[in-house]
């Protein structure tokens, strides 16, 4: 198939950036390619012409590392539900389509180059409390605390987050609530995470605010965009945990 791409090109964080149109470079595209392989092909053709290739992040290309991050026709990770950009395939498009590709858009995710952004703010949130404070060597036998299957499954549902930031990119407020709440829910649900649950919730929410992410106004775009199907109910859990922790803080 032949396509027309409008790709966001931006030299570095200071550059104002803008869309560039590509047509010659996107001819004869196979429907079996992944979306990122389309960009690989375009890049090979750009380099052959002596131009700079499009910079974009990707690593595992199997939907688990959370590195790839691009808005495709207005939707983070593109048109397929529960699918990262690396697993989106060109069957989703047809000959003659026009595709717009942009980086994640959020104040807390400054653009580094073209489609690459800096997501350090997400690491900062986890560093504020997204852990259980146990030193290596002091763990009791793993079966010494029984954890019901339902509890373990609920924790796993939340822990499936890949930290890609699509929820932030999808949110009109650029809120990181779904990301933060998923981590809090994962840890607070498990018995091992209970002792620090209150402090963790307060610290992570504060870190999220400090990083400049917006608030939640219940659009639920985050849930729709999440490639791992994290449910927005974790946000309600987080809000409840936050209220409780604020009131019982010592």
């Amino acid at each position: 198939m032949n396509l027309t791409l409008y790709v966001w090109r931006q030299k570095d964080a200071k550059d104002s950036g803008g869309f560039e149109k590509y047509t010659d470079e996107c001819k004869d595209i196979s429907e079996h390619m992944s979306f990122l392989e389309l960009l690989d092909v375009v890049n090979e053709r750009l380099i052959e012409k002596g131009k700079m290739p499009i910079a974009f992040d990707s690593d595992c290309r199997e939907g688990i590392c959370g590195t790839c991050s691009m808005v495709i026709n207005g939707r983070p990770h593109g048109p397929w539900k529960k699918t990262t950009a690396c697993q989106l395939h060109m069957r989703a498009f047809k000959d003659g389509d026009v595709i717009y590709i942009e980086p994640w858009r959020a104040k807390s995710f400054p653009v580094l180059q073209d489609l690459m952004v800096d997501r350090k703010a997400l690491d900062d949130i986890v560093q504020a409390g997204g852990y259980i404070s146990t030193n290596c060597g002091s763990a009791p036998d793993a079966n010494s605390v029984q954890i019901g299957k339902e509890i373990a499954d609920a924790a796993m549902d939340a822990a499936a987050c890949i930290g890609c930031g699509a929820c932030v990119a999808a949110c009109p407020n650029a809120s990181a609530m779904l990301f933060t709440a998923a981590k809090i829910s994962h840890m607070n649900t498990l018995p091992q995470g209970k002792p620090e649950a209150g402090k963790r919730t307060l610290d992570m929410v504060n870190a999220m605010d400090q990083a400049g992410f917006g608030n939640c106004s219940n659009h639920l775009e985050c849930e729709a965009a999440c490639p791992k199907d994290i449910k927005a109910t974790v946000i309600a859990e987080m809000n409840r945990a936050y209220a409780k922790a604020s009131l019982t803080k010592r």
Partner: peptide
């Protein structure tokens, strides 16, 4: 054997039986 203990203590949600064991 220690790895499983350590990972569990760190909050790794390993699959469980209904009775709560790993």
């Amino acid at each position: 054997r220690n790895i499983i203990d350590q990972a569990t203590a760190m909050g790794v949600p390993f699959a469980r039986e209904y009775g709560g064991t790993l």
